[in-house]
């Protein structure tokens, strides 16, 4: 990609719509990132003044070119939704891309009949993975073993973060939030209650809990990328498609909220959490191997996973991740 459009020095004053756009666009130094004394070349500031304080994560509609995907940007969509039949997603594409319809039919005929939709706020990969990870532990044939194994994996992560240079101060609250949620799957809390599936869904729709877990997974992803040469030697900037330093990549595309995940982030997080992740790629046209309609990307190289454990299943459409399921709705007792 080229330099951003330097001549479009536009300001949008919601409070005074008559303000005319400035015409000058002289090059001025710009601040880059944390702890960086040097400055990059850049343009003068541009801004929009908001009447209401909005989310810091503008939706990336340029990536959401499929009509149905725009539904993800509805502000009141829950962070993680209820399980619904995949047929509902099919309906949204029936008047649009037949390629998507064909791929959805293929998924349904192969047992993937449910979808749990995640808000399209740029954190959808991390939030989807976290929820599916917890739910998979909860429903494991041997839940006790699954919880113990998850706790031991999670308890190994602060050392990784410290090795990457993160102060405990900045991650420990988020770490404890994540760990305590996983513990509650089996261990009763102070009220003698263990985490029910409904409470898990509730926790992931509580912004403070949900975002804290997303923050921790972002930091963990960053730490893993920085420490793993198999990943850190092959990082491309999503903006320029050129090789970038791990530190720059992590600061710009991993640690900040709302920055979407691509393959390196997925690979790193699967490794750090020791979990297998399978992602079904829905793009409306390409096919997988053996004449399959859908390509699955398997992140299954993670060391130390529980043998035989079911992978976490995600559904990818350009610019967005949801959770894929072999059930089409939450069980009847889910919300009791």
């Amino acid at each position: 990609m080229t330099e951003p459009s330097s001549s479009s020095h536009q300001e949008i004053f919601q409070e005074s719509p008559s303000a005319s756009p400035s015409e000058d666009a002289t090059i001025a130094p710009r601040m880059k990132s944390k702890d960086l004394p040097e400055l990059d070349e850049a343009q003068p500031p541009e801004y929009t003044i908001m009447d209401e304080f909005q989310s810091l994560t503008p939706l990336r509609e340029y990536q959401m070119d499929e009509q149905a995907l725009l539904a993800e940007s509805i502000p009141d969509r829950p962070l993680i939704g209820p399980l619904v039949p995949l047929a509902m997603l099919r309906e949204e594409y029936e008047r649009g891309s037949q390629g998507f319809v064909r791929q959805i039919d293929w998924l349904m005929s192969h047992g993937h009949i449910g979808i749990r939709r995640t808000k399209g706020d740029g954190d959808c990969f991390y939030r989807s993975l976290a929820f599916a990870y917890c739910e998979r532990i909860m429903h494991a044939p041997d839940a006790e073993l699954a919880v113990m194994s998850a706790i031991s994996s999670i308890e190994a992560t602060p050392a990784l973060l410290e090795a990457a240079g993160f102060q405990p101060l900045v991650f420990e609250d988020f770490y404890e939030m994540f760990l305590s949620l996983v513990r509650k799957i089996l261990a009763p809390d102070e009220n003698g209650k263990v985490l029910t599936p409904a409470a898990l869904l509730g926790a992931f729709n509580d912004p403070e809990t949900s975002n804290s877990i997303v923050v921790y997974l972002r930091m963990l992803t960053s730490a893993q990328i920085r420490s793993d040469p198999d990943i850190s030697n092959f990082l491309l900037s999503p903006e320029t498609a050129e090789f970038v330093e791990p530190r720059v990549f992590c600061e710009h595309f991993v640690e900040a909220m709302g920055k979407e995940a691509d393959h390196p982030q997925m690979q790193a997080l699967a490794q750090a959490l020791r979990v297998h992740v399978s992602v079904a790629y829905l793009d409306g046209h390409s096919s997988g191997q053996n004449g399959d309609e859908v390509t699955f990307v398997h992140l299954d190289k993670a060391v130390g996973t529980v043998p035989g454990a079911e992978p976490v299943m995600l559904l990818y459409r350009p610019g967005h991740y949801d959770i894929l399921d072999t059930r089409s709705e939450d069980p009847m007792d889910y919300y009791t």
Partner: peptide, 16 residues
Amino acid sequence: NPKKTQFVYHDDTGIS
């Protein structure tokens, strides 16, 4: 409150 100003940062193509 400066947080009510949404500045445009030029290293972020596509986001505004």
